[in-house]
């Protein structure tokens, strides 16, 4: 059984971020891999060690503040599970929360979970639009598409990016980097939602969950023609060649 924890689904769900959970769940089911999704809401107890995959979506400033206060109380358990190989996907506001701090426009540093080495600062304008990035996993690279809408500018320290920007802004519109990767943690600004249109990444996450449980199994191939076509259409709109 793959156990999934959806963190704060009522508060963090922008641009259909919940679709990431649906995609992960369905692609497990279609392969007869049992999967269970639990939701964690403010104030509820959680044991991160019992989960294989944790998902955090994006939210507005108000929701992010509420979540931040709650998640801070569980910071050490969450950080320990990450060090232990917990698979995490964090989008936009959820991604920002994993960093060291968020610097507001008036220069105030709002502490974040500080489980990854990056920080975010408030930008002057919103970075909005379609994004394509080149991602490398297991030595092979492929294109990932999504939609970004953020004013926070993220700057990585020692952690690697998820990918390199081919079109769009990415973390800050300057350094050509998008998202973050540390151990089995993946952070990204890409809504869309990210996983349904980028099934190679989805399957990679499923594979990591199985591997963490000591299960070495080739994932059964699925008919991904709709997903591939959707991805290719988005790439074409951005003036990029297909995969």
């Amino acid at each position: 059984m793959i156990r999934v924890c959806h963190l704060y689904p009522d508060l963090l769900n922008l641009y259909g971020d919940r679709g990431n959970i649906i995609a992960f769940q369905q692609r497990c089911r279609w392969r007869d891999l049992p999967v269970q999704v639990d939701s964690l809401n403010l104030g509820e107890k959680v044991d991160f060690q019992k989960y294989d995959f944790v998902f955090l979506g994006g939210g507005s400033d108000r929701e992010q503040t509420l979540v931040s206060v709650d998640l801070m109380k569980r910071r050490d358990e969450f950080a320990a599970a990450i060090e232990d190989g917990l698979v995490v996907l964090a989008i936009c506001g959820g991604f920002q929360l994993l960093g060291s701090y968020f610097m507001s426009r008036n220069g105030e540093n709002i502490p974040c979970l500080d489980v990854l080495d990056f920080y975010t600062k408030a930008g002057e304008r919103r970075l909005v639009g379609n994004v394509a990035i080149e991602v490398e996993l297991n030595g092979s690279s492929f294109k990932v598409v999504g939609f970004e809408n953020h004013s926070g500018l993220t700057f990585l320290g020692n952690n690697k990016p998820l990918g390199r920007v081919l079109s769009g802004n990415g973390n800050n519109g300057r350094d050509g980097l998008e998202g973050v990767r540390y151990k089995n943690v993946f952070g990204s600004y890409l809504h869309g939602p990210l996983l349904p249109k980028n099934v190679r990444l989805t399957d990679y996450l499923i594979g990591l969950c199985l591997e963490r449980r000591g299960i070495k199994k080739e994932l059964k191939p699925l008919d991904d023609s709709f997903e591939k076509r959707a991805c290719e259409i988005m790439l074409r709109r951005m003036g990029l060649p297909g995969r």
Partner: peptide, 20 residues
């Protein structure tokens, strides 16, 4: 939308797509 319907459980053979 075809992707959305697929993940909502609509069988792929019930969906036709048109780029125009």
């Amino acid at each position: 939308m075809a992707v959305r319907l697929k993940y909502a459980g609509v069988p792929a053979d019930k969906v036709t797509t048109d780029e125009n």
